[in-house]
Design a protein around this nucleic acid. Structure first.
Lengths: 344, 344
DNA sequence: GTGAAAGCGCTAACAA
DNA sequence: TTGTTAGCGCTTTCAC
């Protein structure tokens, strides 16, 4: 028994030079074996591999990135990770990234636009190869020409101020037109539209869809738009006020995930029930919506499709930095369930 | 009008040397100004800052990390980001990290132990300063002495095979003892315990708590443990079988988030209702549990407390790599709501 | 096909 | 205090 540490377990991790020395080759050759960028004769290759195993050598990705000029990492910025829409989106992106041997740096801005800019700067300082951003505000534009210092970026879901970026979003306008039409068909004429923040592009589009559907039905005067802010609680408070009025709506179209929860809470808080007293059409989808009765009817955004598109656009932009920006739109689908009542 | 690009917008980003040249100082001085590690005389400081602004210089964090030996980044591994327990946990950690100027590399192993090891290796290759791991299996141990090559790591929630790590978890045993006792008090004698995967430490502890409570009540023969696996669907299927038996339980204790959703689904699928036909005690907490009726009674894990502790332990270990490992336990709380019926 | 040497951008010694 | 120099670990010319 010896007191000296087992071989290959020195205090400092082995470097490429250690491997080269042990294998009796040059560092460059070790690199060529490991990256496969150049062919190496079989005997040397074997010696290198043996030395790698012997020393438990793991390449320092940092050094490699510095030299190579690419980090194989991307930054992803979302406003709120507790929102299942965003957590599912991040999970999808993470698995796409892993498949392409990319890693992701995550930032959750918690709907704070100030912090967001700083965090994006920090991501940039780490030399991420690209950025996927669901911004907390439309004016996320970083730097004068919104270019993030040349780092490729794709904007997702919201904040499309700058046309110069690649963007992916769902067809918010059509989704809300369809949703409103659905309520109209079922006889509702007094539909409150609960939105979050009117400053967000996607919310503007959703509101426009609602308006359009009413106009199409010849009911442009029936608009009833309530802005509830970005949390469940503020949404609940906002729509609860409407529900307490004598002329309360017969249906609520909650046009975001937090709005859906807020509306459901408000309905309970006012001792009403859906769909009997007031109907509810929600937005986004989550497991619980088909667990407790009544199942919640919603507009579903295709998260995997969104994530796939975002990833494809980003990889394309990394390959071709000067290509013309693309603006992709993916369709939503209506999931009619049990929370909407047919009116006489 | 000129065709040459505006100043400071060259093709290549400015380096510390460019700044030094423009300010008429040495690169080291620029570094000292920017990091604040050494004092620099005011006039030079100003000149440096002016040059930084002029060139829109942003330090390359990669190069700094390589030289400095620290990346100010940590890796976080969770088994499933769509589980609100983990997404909330990650969000908490992210904000703690941001406050300490750390960034986080996220991996979601999607409950796949194979992929997990590879991903941890990739994280290590990026020289993260530390790791926070909610492993998908107890045998996550990486390398012979479970040391992750010297990188500090704290294990969270589950997978505590290796005593040599710092760990944080909730008091699973006590939580399930309390929960079972609660059901017992309300008159239930036939309680099915729905667990996910018996190979996980935390699940073993939860099961032990259930057993202990039954034993304490003098009912050791009434154990009824069902393992439903790690998804909502498999949990649903497993407990649905129990519910279809003639001697179906009067209560279900769903001992994990996916189990709670699975149990609720199974109850609906068998045309039963809770709490009337069968009572339900869930695990973890989520917004929807207090939105739709009946509100779900659960055992709540204090996510912020867990995250704070994990962060504190990790920072401590980074400062003092050789300190003795700490094993922290934080208490859960019972949230009695409406899904449990008192039996005659 | 292989080795030697330069250098990615930064910071920590050491000199001045 | 400030400048000079070396080097973190890797990859990539460029000779051989």
């Amino acid at each position: 028994m010896t007191l000296s540490p087992p071989s290959g377990r020195g205090l400092k991790p082995a470097t490429i030079r250690d491997v080269a020395r042990l294998a009796g080759v040059a560092p460059g050759t070790v690199s060529n074996v490991l990256t496969g960028r150049k062919l190496v004769a079989e005997p040397l290759r074997k010696a290198v591999l043996a030395a790698v195993a012997e020393l438990d050598y793991r390449p320092n990705h940092l050094a490699s990135s510095l030299r190579f000029g690419r980090t194989q990492s991307i930054g992803i910025v979302v406003p709120d990770l507790t929102n299942p829409f965003f957590s599912s989106f991040v999970q999808e992106i993470e698995s796409l990234a892993a498949a392409d041997r990319f890693q992701i740096l995550l930032m959750s801005s918690q709907e704070d636009p100030e912090g967001e800019v700083d965090r994006i700067k920090a991501l940039l300082a780490r030399q991420v190869d690209g950025l996927i951003i669901a911004a907390s505000r439309d004016d996320v534009a970083y730097g004068e020409n919104s270019t993030f210092g040349g780092t490729p970026a794709v904007l997702v879901d919201r904040a499309f101020g700058a046309e110069s970026f690649d963007t992916v979003a769902t067809d918010n306008e059509a989704a809300c037109r369809t949703g409103t039409a659905h309520l109209l068909e079922l006889g509702h004429r007094d539909i409150a539209f609960l939105a979050t923040d009117e400053r967000l592009t996607n919310i503007k589009q959703r509101t426009a869809g609602y308006r359009q559907a009413l106009a199409d039905a010849g009911l442009p005067g029936r608009e009833r738009i309530v802005y509830g802010g970005l949390t469940i609680e503020t949404c609940r408070a906002a729509i609860e006020q409407e529900l307490r009025r004598a002329d309360r709506p017969t249906a609520i179209f909650a046009s975001a995930y937090v709005a859906t929860l807020g509306a459901a809470k408000a309905i309970r808080a006012t001792d009403l029930a859906f769909p009997d007293d007031v109907s509810l059409l929600g937005f986004d989808d989550s497991d619980w919506m088909t667990v407790l009765r009544p199942y919640v009817s919603t507009i579903q955004q295709p998260i995997d499709h969104l994530a796939n598109t975002a990833w494809r656009l980003l990889m394309r932009r990394i390959e071709q930095p000067t290509a013309a920006p693309l603006h992709e739109i993916v369709p939503c689908s209506l999931r009619p369930r049990e929370s909407i009542r047919r009116l006489a």
